[in-house]
Design a protein around this nucleic acid. Structure first.
Lengths: 205, 205
DNA sequence: GTCTATATGAAGATAGAC
DNA sequence: GTCTATCTTCATATAGAC
């Protein structure tokens, strides 16, 4: 059993190392990030790094676990609990697409997709505390709407997937493929609107 | 202007090198694949490798371009040109999901997502001869159906994206995240069926 | 615990014989 | 064109002084 401690000086330095490692891994990937670089950016030496983490893999794993926890916490912290269905869904679709377009989210997704071959358990860890949680929450909201008679009754998890898929659609895919052109705000709005409209056509009572 | 030649002995060896490089890059990623390993698997020496390709980056780029061309060719080579709408859409959804689940397709997508930071033009090349072509073809089919009065008239490209998104949905995402459990044939069927059903609800005339 | 210095190995790339 | 042998660089990881 572990207890929440006041952070010691050691804990703080550990967090600093993880901060730097996170920035480097997100920016360069696992293989291209060297322990020397991390040590230099921390302002310490490689010897110190190896005092805190047995090797590069362990440092990477610790960093990924922390990132997964943080991303989980920061999702869907707010949102209208009432109002008409279309407005609520539009809010969710927009928030979700915006979240997936941030450099942090893109970076962690790239990292998972790149390194899951080297760290087989990484994918499951990420999925369980990322996409799975998000889909569950969207599903909960949709289930409420079904119970209230605002949506046709059906498997809420499948509906949540369809909703998420159409919300992110083209704009997300172009970015993850590295297509350089940025979407305009108008394109962003149009995609969200079309996603909600299409979803409601399919899932109206 | 280049002309199609009968393949010389040099061309054949070049193809062999690309075959080996492709297998290694797909399996290990760019950074973890060494020129020494490729040379060994080709059965030659590193000196020979550098005779055919100036450096590792150029070899990688040549391999990616070839893969993009091949994947483009192998997509949608067959498919029912007539029949009822639901059957045709089911065929497309199934073919598309199956295609995206193959190790080759998963591998090239992982590679693009991983390395697009290092090779900025890679994403655009891949997108133009992969996803863009596929979406265009689905859009063409949907437009035909709209013209025939089988579907509600609307932007065919957006409809194609929604169709594609729901066809691949959960099963594709779980695999790309590296979730280890494989989908059962029943889950596969159910997803395709639900995708077509939902699409038709939203896009029926 | 933290540092400097270094051991050890492997990578990309090249030189030069055949 | 292809090989063997090698150069150079840079990575992970460790040893040992303070």
């Amino acid at each position: 059993m572990s207890v929440a401690h006041a952070p010691s000086r050691r804990d703080e330095r550990r967090e600093t190392i993880l901060d730097v490692a996170q920035a480097c891994f997100l920016d360069q990937g696992f293989a291209a990030t060297s322990m020397s670089t991390i040590a230099a950016k921390v302002g310490g030496s490689k010897g110190t790094l190896y005092n805190y983490f047995k090797n590069k893999e362990e440092l990477f794993a610790a960093m990924m676990q922390r990132m997964c926890r943080e991303l989980q916490e920061n999702l869907f912290d707010v949102g209208p609990q009432s109002g008409d269905v279309e407005a609520r869904l539009t809010h969710f679709a927009r928030a979700f697409l915006e979240h997936l377009m941030t450099p942090e989210t893109q970076g962690v997704q790239r990292l998972v997709i790149s390194e899951v071959g080297r760290f087989p358990e990484l994918g499951q860890v990420f999925y369980d505390c990322g996409p799975k949680v998000v889909l569950g929450r969207i599903g909960d909201v949709l289930k409420e709407m079904m119970d209230a008679g605002s949506l046709r009754r059906t498997d809420p998890l499948v509906a949540a997937q369809h909703f998420k898929d159409m919300a992110i659609s083209g704009i997300y895919w172009e970015r993850i493929w590295g297509v350089t052109s940025d979407p305009t705000p108008a394109e962003f709005d149009a995609q969200v609107e079309r996603a909600v409209e299409t979803f409601l056509r399919a899932y109206a009572p």
